[in-house]
């Protein structure tokens, strides 16, 4: 394990940002810390980097206890959401900074900077000032700067958060490819589940200062430990007493045993997909509507339209999670997960 976090607790006044967090981050992988804003994931990353001091607990990096080490001596690379560019230095000088601090010989610095600029596709911008670069280019510069010192771990705090959607997606793919080349243990913070699912080898879901689940993207999506994780990764709707993915619901036009009866109140067509809002019998308002997604062909074959009476049931093999009820914050240790066998509609 590359990073071992044990019993980390951190509060700001009355607010508990992290509450007894334990997590191990494997060597050489790309790990995402995923969770809603204010959930404590950035604080955890900053504690690993030594930029915040935890109230309790310990951090080990590559087997060395780093809990009381200042950031200067942790040998981590840190990339900030807003680039943290040294505005008065050229791109090359920015990248060379860490090496100059370490008093490496000049030719070596030059060679390494050239290599890194090549790696992040910024060679032709070496002598520009950061203000002359676009957001995406600045972030690549920041990445090269962090990698220059050959850090044991690379930490990225919402690295694509300040970029627009298109650049964001490009950089995301590029980070994945870069990691496959460089293989440095990388941890990045994001609140975007799609980003985490696409890029990460492993995802740590953090909410309200606690870790909800750790696993591969597939594990998290297919076997969410609780309703929070299920709701946070991917779309989710409530069918009866359970949370379920909208595409895991089968629609029948005839009565079925155990199926929920309802009426289609709204139908949206988005490309090849149809999204139905089904109001269960006896429900008063749209708050109880069940969302169902299915293909257009299938919807047409059943002749579904607004006003049609339908019966909804979970599909075979669908993952469902009971809706958490009662006092907030009570987490069931073992969430009962059931796979119900429902009848599939004949096509």
């Amino acid at each position: 394990m590359s990073i071992e976090v044990r019993g980390i607790t951190k509060g700001y006044g009355d607010f508990v940002a992290l509450d007894d967090v334990n997590v191990s981050i494997p060597t050489g992988q790309l790990t995402a810390l995923l969770g809603p804003s204010g959930g404590g994931k950035s604080t955890l990353l900053r504690i690993i980097a030594g930029l915040e001091v935890a109230d309790a607990g310990s951090v080990q990096i590559e087997g060395v206890d780093a809990t009381s080490l200042p950031p200067q001596r942790r040998n981590v690379g840190f990339v900030f959401q807003h680039y943290a560019a040294f505005k008065h230095m050229t791109v090359a000088k920015n990248v060379a900074f860490g090496l100059e601090i370490r008093k490496r010989p000049k030719p070596e610095i030059k060679q390494r900077v050239d290599e890194l600029l090549e790696l992040v596709h910024l060679s032709q911008f070496a002598h520009r000032l950061p203000s002359q670069l676009s957001g995406g280019q600045r972030q690549r510069m920041a990445l090269a700067r962090a990698l220059a010192v050959e850090p044991k771990v690379l930490l990225l705090d919402e690295p694509f958060g300040a970029l627009d959607a298109k650049v964001r997606k490009e950089l995301r793919d590029w980070l994945r490819r870069l990691h496959d080349e460089v293989h440095v243990t990388t941890v990045f913070v994001t609140h975007d589940q799609e980003e985490a699912l696409e890029v990460a080898d492993e995802i740590v879901v953090i909410n309200e200062g606690r870790i909800e689940q750790v696993g591969t993207p597939e594990q998290l999506y297919d076997e969410p430990a609780n309703d929070f994780v299920m709701g946070f990764l991917g779309e989710v709707t409530t069918l009866g007493d359970h949370l379920i993915r909208p595409h895991d619901i089968t629609v029948h036009t005839t009565e079925q045993a155990g199926a929920v009866r309802g009426e289609i109140v709204r139908a949206l067509r988005i490309g090849f997909e149809v999204r139905l809002f089904v109001r269960p019998a006896g429900a008063a308002d749209e708050g109880a509507d069940v969302v169902v997604t299915l293909t257009r062909t299938f919807a047409r074959s059943l002749g579904l339209e607004v006003g049609t009476a339908v019966w909804l049931a979970p599909e075979t093999g669908a993952r469902v999670v009971p809706v958490r009820r009662g006092s907030a914050g009570v987490l069931s240790d073992e969430t009962p997960v059931s796979t119900e066998k429902g009848a599939t509609a004949a096509v």
């Binding site: 980097a49 690379g77 840190f78 943290a84 040294f86 010192v149």
Partner: peptide, 9 residues
């Protein structure tokens, strides 16, 4: 910016 410099040593 200062934090970036600190983490670079």
């Amino acid at each position: 910016v200062e934090e970036a410099a600190a983490s670079l040593g």
